[in-house]
Amino acid sequence: MSLIELRGASRTYQIGERRVTALEAVDLTVDVGEFVVVLGPSGCGKTTLLNLVGALDVASEGEVTVAGHHIVGASRGELSRFRRETVSFVFQTFNLFQALTAIENVQFGVDVTGRHREEPDRAMTVLERVGLQDRAHHFPHQLSGGEQQRVAIARALATGNPVLLADEPTGELDFRTGVQILELLHEQAHVGVTVIIVTHNREIARVADRVVELGSGRVTADGPPVGGQVPINELRW
């Protein structure tokens, strides 16, 4: 059974008197442990798709089911609980808590799911996994962009949730750092986390298990990368 399932999912917005369709009748399924890249130009509905899966937004029409949770029609509290227990986010602009140190930001991910009682050292373990144990007590403004994004990934991983959603995670980073981040995200799929990355960078799509292309709010292509999957060290942008 698929972990994520969208059936005829549409999202429209009313802007003044204008009705804008961001996503139109999208059908999509994603299995456990898949590494999926959603590709497309700006304004094609990539982020909207990610927001529907992450329950940050709710489809105007259709069905969205993630790990057995029906997103459409759920209450605010149910959506909040779903996000807490099922998905985690990595953002383009990191969105770290500026008043918390790296380890505390990661600890937030642990705390929010309530795992701090079961695994008191989880935050440091995860931070070690992203190679930042030496920067644990630094504040975000004391870290480089790449380090900040690694902290953000660690925070997302610390939740232990089965779905990791990343919106342009390399958008603010240089090539070398971007590759490091991709490696980190790619590793997660190997340990059973379903990873969905949204990007407009076609080069990144080459490392995905599956590429979903969007155009004007519709799925225009869905399958393995054109030319086949390549190792991350072959990427160039």
Binding site: S80, R81, R83, R84, N95
Partner: peptide, 14 residues
């Protein structure tokens, strides 16, 4: 606002 939105994204209750 952005920090609060991040918390909401992680399911932190209102």
């Amino acid at each position: 606002a952005r920090e609060n939105a991040t918390m909401f994204a992680f399911g932190y209750p209102l």
